[in-house]
Design a protein around this nucleic acid. Structure first.
Lengths: 181, 181
DNA sequence: ACCTGAACACCGTTCAAGT
DNA sequence: ACCTGAACACCGTTCAAGT
């Protein structure tokens, strides 16, 4: 019968996990193929059996993070749902080095991402048609991608988000009026 | 009497201009201290007389770009003025490599930047108080910083911007109603 | 099939020396 | 004062070789 794979053996998964933990612990500069080999207790070139080059490895890291983000369920009011979705995104981005954020943002918030799909769905619930929802999502996604670059405190994220959500249009506001107006 | 400085002699200005043109022409990876020396027709270490290290040179490049951005004057309606200001910013960011954009965005759009000051002034004209203007500006600035990361066509920038500006609050809308509502 | 190990063409930066 | 030039400790990646 098949045995559990030898954990000392390399695999794409083990490489990605080690590389990501290295990235989180020591930053972007430290994530080199040579240092990664060291971390895996293997000679630098061994990783090249699994990834064509460093760029392909970074792509895999991006994919790993995108998969890892836990999307909140579809229950609840659409405003709260959007806030939860974008909160997940901004927390994910904020914890990572800027150089990696620039690679991650399109995969996390671009039109094809799971988070993006869930968010447009929430905007549909709010009464926006597909075209309106896409434009509103562009505003929200770009805001979320840019927020960590300007890097004030995380709490301020909610303020700007509120400002944008106030502008999502009459169709949305008619369904569920904003709290303060 | 004093003569014009020898153009073959190094200076911070000449180094910054050469480095920036190298960055624009050949990208972020090509901008190395060694290649820069080559471009200046000088040995690599000569640049270290003018900049402590590469990081300080990149800071100077950022400052160079921020200075270079031509801010449109204070004339005209506040919405149009904001659109012009943010249009300048997004065009500047879009033309540059993502790795450099991450360094540039805070300097260009952060609270202390000239562009930021002009924008908050425009928002004051719209009838927002200082606290409202700062929150609104955070939304607009983060949107503008994030837009090039998600990189759709430039024309789409106006769509998201309109969505956000629609949410700038009753005080502003009372002064100058939105075109479509 | 998978890992090794030397090698190549690069980096940023130090230091002591030249002019 | 300003530039040189060798040197150090790194990079990513190639290639041929080992097991």
């Amino acid at each position: 019968m098949p045995r559990a794979p030898d954990p000392s053996r390399l695999s794409r998964e083990r490489i990605v996990e080690t590389a990501f933990s290295l990235l989180e612990r020591e930053g972007w500069e430290t994530l080199s193929m040579r240092r990664l080999g060291q971390e895996l207790d293997v000679w630098p070139m061994a990783v090249y059996r699994y990834f064509r080059d460093k760029d392909e490895l970074v792509d895999a890291l991006v994919e790993h993070v995108v998969q890892e983000v836990a999307l909140p369920g579809a229950r609840g009011a659409w405003r709260a749902r959007l806030r939860r979705l974008l909160g997940e995104a901004v927390r994910t981005l904020e914890g990572l080095p800027p150089e990696f954020r620039a690679r991650l943002a399109p995969a996390l918030l671009g039109p094809a991402s799971p988070l993006s799909t869930a968010a447009r769905d929430a905007l549909g619930t709010a009464g926006l048609d597909n075209s309106q929802a896409s434009k509103a999502w562009l505003a929200l996604a770009a805001y979320t991608a840019g927020f960590p670059e300007l890097a004030p405190s995380e709490s301020a994220f909610e303020d700007g988000l509120q400002t944008i959500m106030d502008g999502l249009g009459e169709a949305a506001n008619a369904l569920e009026p904003a709290t303060s107006t």
